[in-house]
């Protein structure tokens, strides 16, 4: 297994570099000037030239690429053109935040999606099943940023005029924590963070949860028909055990593949959700960087995203092997 992981990681290297080179080229071809934020009559053109020189933007593109590659390979991600600080420091702040948000979302997606899928499969063709199917379709077709805005408008805004609405169901519309976060107790910090996670993780995850529910439902229905489920019942196992132990683990196999597919989707969804909810994560870093043509930051964030996607797929693969002994068996023999 270790050898397999190692080989997969090696295989990912050319892919990641391909992506980075492509992004570099796109950035150079796309119109826009990182110095345009300084556009004001009080900023003399000579000053702009000097800034370009200080940033190395006056060099020809291929030189810029080689320079960037050199420092990148030596572990230096460079300096942000707009924030004027090492990109590594920015990423160190941002990556955990995005991982927290997308991790929570992922948990939500799979916990809720699978639970609903199971209920639907077990109660196939019931009214509940049809209602959930309809609901899932409705939610699935909502764009995450729009849903985010709606959540804010309703659960963080309108409810402030509804007197009977319980305090516990009013959620903060933005940020990761309250302004007095560092003054709170450990438990207070935990609940405060959780409170702030509610709306963004729902906005980010709910449409994927709907599709996970769809997949789980059909996968469960497929599995429930299998002979080994009848075997399990013939053993006298309670239905709970039959469904949650014997059926679910098998039904999860195709769902795990989804994990690998959803992570990149989550990361890209995080861009808009982070903007809407002022969540200080990678998504916003990349969004701002692209907006402001902060080339080195775009490159670095792209790199991080690419690596995260590769790792996510690898994790999905490993999980697949953990759940399915047949795959594990093949891998070990290879």
């Amino acid at each position: 297994m270790t050898a397999y992981i190692f080989r997969r990681l090696l295989q990912a290297i050319p892919l990641v570099f391909g992506i980075l080179t492509l992004v570099f080229v796109i950035l150079q071809v796309a119109p826009g000037d990182p110095m345009a934020i300084y556009m004001h009559p009080s900023v003399a053109p000579e000053v702009l030239e000097q800034m370009r020189e200080n940033y190395g933007l006056d060099q020809p593109v291929h030189i810029q690429y080689v320079r960037w590659l050199k420092s990148f390979l030596s572990g230096d991600l460079g300096t942000s053109l707009t924030q004027n600080r090492p990109i590594a420091a920015i990423l160190a702040e941002r990556i955990p935040n995005t991982l927290l948000l997308s991790g929570t979302s992922l948990l939500l997606i799979f916990a809720i999606g699978i639970a609903i899928g199971i209920v639907q499969a077990v109660r196939q063709h019931s009214k509940l099943d049809h209602a959930l199917t309809l609901g899932a379709l409705f939610i699935y077709s909502m764009p995450s940023f729009w849903l985010g805005l709606m959540l804010i408008l309703i659960l963080a805004y309108r409810v402030h005029w509804v007197e009977w609405w319980p305090e516990a169901l009013k959620f903060p519309p933005s940020g990761m924590d309250s302004v007095n976060y560092d003054l709170l107790s450990t438990w207070g910090k935990f609940t405060d963070r959780l409170d702030h996670l509610v709306l963004p993780s729902i906005a980010l995850g709910v449409s994927s949860a709907a599709s996970v529910a769809r997949y789980t439902r059909s996968s469960m229905l497929e599995v429930i028909r299998q002979d080994y489920i009848r075997t399990a019942r013939a053993k006298g196992l309670p239905e709970r055990t039959v469904i949650l132990k014997h059926a679910l683990k098998n039904a999860l196999l195709p769902i795990i593949t989804l994990l690998g597919l959803y992570l990149p989707f989550l990361f890209s969804g995080a861009v808009l959700v982070e903007v809407v909810f002022a969540w200080p994560g990678m998504g916003r870093a990349i969004y701002d960087a692209i907006q402001q043509r902060d080339y080195p930051t775009v490159m670095a964030t792209t790199f991080v995203f690419a690596v995260m996607v590769v790792i996510a797929n690898l994790i999905a693969d490993i999980l697949y092997a953990v759940v399915d002994p047949r795959i594990r068996y093949e891998r070990e023999r290879r």
């Binding site: 805005l149 804010i152 809407v276 002022a278």
Partner: peptide, 22 residues
Amino acid sequence: DRLVYRVIQEPTTLLGELIAGE
């Protein structure tokens, strides 16, 4: 005692925070 500056890009969100008292 403390002055905090927060960045909230989306105007709707910002309005929500103002109304919520944050």
